[in-house]
Design a binder for these strands. Sequence first.
DNA 1: AACGCGGGGTA
DNA 2: TACCCAGCGTT
Length: 374
Amino acid sequence: MLETKRPLSECTAFQDTSLVIAPRLLPWYDRHARELPWRKGPQKMRGSGDQRELAVPYHVWLSEIMLQQTTVATVKAYFLKFLAIWPTVEDLAQADLDQVLTAWAGLGYYARARNLHRCAQVVAEELDGIFPDNEAALLKLPGVGPYTAAAIAAIAFDRPAAVVDGNVERVIARFYALQDPLPGVKTEIRTLAAKQTPQERSGDYAQAMMDLGATICTPRNPACVLCPIQAGCLGREKGIAAELPKKAPKKLKPIRRAFAYLFRDEEGSVLLRRRAESGLLGGMVEVPSGSWGEAPEPERDRFLDDLGHWSLLEGQVKHTFTHFHFEISLLQAKVGKDEKEQIAGKVGGSWHVAEEFSGLALPTVMKKILYQAV
DNA sequence: AACGCGGGGTA
DNA sequence: TACCCAGCGTT
């Protein structure tokens, strides 16, 4: 395969002397690119021509949505599961939202799953199942922002879009020794990143930059000695690479507390209900709970209190969300056969045995509660 | 521009 | 255990 490539020196990307990153980064990527389920090999050639084998747009889109705020290691299994269940964007568009949320459970940021489903429907029903091949059109799709639009344009269609995620921000901030803190310095980073984006092998370049940030130019303890662009890196020259990019101080997370109310029947079934469509854990399944307050002690829920004879279980479940810590105290009540349906109606939920849990859209915090109590 | 939104990895 | 990471949509 490698012999069929044109010499690097013939690529216009390497003749432009203002490009200081791509000429060193792409050869490194050819040797070190990670094998990922949604990725074709770097610059694989077909036959004697120079046409690249590009990844399937559906695969690129699906993986990029999952990779927002989520590590490669975590995404792999979910990506393969989604592809097994829904091989095409039309399949995904025809799924029920609840099926999608169930498959997404555990990945977090559940608005991504709702937007994923909406986006699949737009592509399948309004765009003949074909993803747009340019940044501007991609940007209009639900759940597709500046990063993802650029990533799909570059990786799926080899367009010279400037792909700037957190990894690229870090690489650029260090390479140019940008001392100003994020998020203010973002505009400057984008400008420099756009200038360094080559017209050829743009998709490989985008992935190479992100691979570099994920494996060499890491947030802490960057492996500068192994870095293909260490020559010319101002952050390394000045000995400040590891401290960049600087960031505005983050605020501390408050602790919220709540009681979870576990209605149990004689056979071990638990009463679960669906959360509101939007907001925290939107559309996901939950154990009924009282209010999630910041007071030193959790608050009992009048309405739920009256529906059973409650006993406090030992221990608390702890979970951390994006912006608060959560401590849950567990209450349990036995419900007789004859009351089950009436209580389910009042609570607005339904009864489930443990064997059904894996088929429900249960976020991690709810699994923790059920695992501890059931 | 600031905030809301999960979960996993590392020191 | 404490801290770190990070796109999109909404406000």
